[in-house]
Amino acid sequence: MSKISGAIFDCDGTLLDSMSMWYDMFDELFRSYGLEPTSEAIDKVEAMTIPDTCTYLHAELGMGGSVEELYDHVERIVTYDYEHKVSEMPGARGMLESLAGAGIPMVVASSSPSPFVRKALACHGMLDFFSDTLCTADVRQGRDKDFPDVYLEALDRLGTSLAETWVFEDAPFAVRSARRMGLHVVGIHNDHDGRDEDFIRSWSDIFTHNYDDVSLEAIHTFDDAARKATPEEA
């Protein structure tokens, strides 16, 4: 049987139904500089931190008069959209309430800058569920979620063990990274975000669409002895 003593949540696509907002933001950003957004460019920056994204877009595509100007432009768009265009992921609040009611500490680990995340969660009345919010750019070497750095820092902040900490994630590369380091993973797939469901499912301990297949009871009764192998272990 499994036990949970701490939880790490992603924000975009996990707590908030905001992935389409980011795609729309990139579309608006590209067009504001007279450029046509391409799937190749979007795929390139998806796993990057926002500062790294702005650095890349400025250096490679000539966006903005400076990286700082571009970052400020992104912040204005995102701050408005989080407040006016984004809703909660169905079932996310219920999951947070269950964990909080059981006294389980929670932190957010996001690729988005912490000020963005705190504003977004505050707008939706979710911020107080969390003891801390972490951003990949602010942790250790500032690497993205292809690396375990932000999860290691989250474990330190929670003070919980690897074996008893669960991660809630929707990004395929992040689900894989968390599982590789030995964390238990709830993989969340939103049908309209266009992400690879089979990939997320293959790396998840519990897989769900919009929290419909996950609960605190399901986590408590998860059988570690029957834990499926990852694609790398199979």
Score class of each variant (00 low, 15 high):
15 L>F: 02
18 S>Y: 00
19 M>Y: 03
20 S>A: 13
20 S>C: 09
21 M>I: 10
21 M>S: 07
22 W>G: 00
22 W>T: 01
23 Y>L: 12
23 Y>H: 10
24 D>V: 11
25 M>E: 07
25 M>D: 07
26 F>C: 03
28 E>Y: 05
29 L>T: 05
31 R>D: 06
31 R>E: 13
33 Y>Q: 02
34 G>L: 08
34 G>D: 09
34 G>Q: 13
34 G>R: 11
35 L>H: 07
36 E>T: 15
37 P>L: 13
37 P>K: 11
37 P>I: 06
37 P>E: 09
38 T>M: 10
38 T>R: 14
39 S>C: 05
39 S>M: 08
40 E>I: 13
41 A>N: 12
41 A>R: 06
42 I>P: 01
42 I>A: 05
44 K>V: 04
44 K>H: 15
45 V>E: 13
46 E>A: 11
47 A>V: 08
47 A>N: 14
48 M>T: 07
48 M>F: 13
49 T>Y: 10
49 T>C: 08
49 T>D: 09
49 T>A: 10
50 I>A: 11
54 C>V: 01
54 C>K: 09
54 C>M: 12
56 Y>M: 00
56 Y>P: 01
60 E>A: 14
60 E>Y: 08
62 G>A: 08
63 M>F: 04
63 M>V: 04
64 G>D: 08
65 G>H: 01
68 E>M: 00
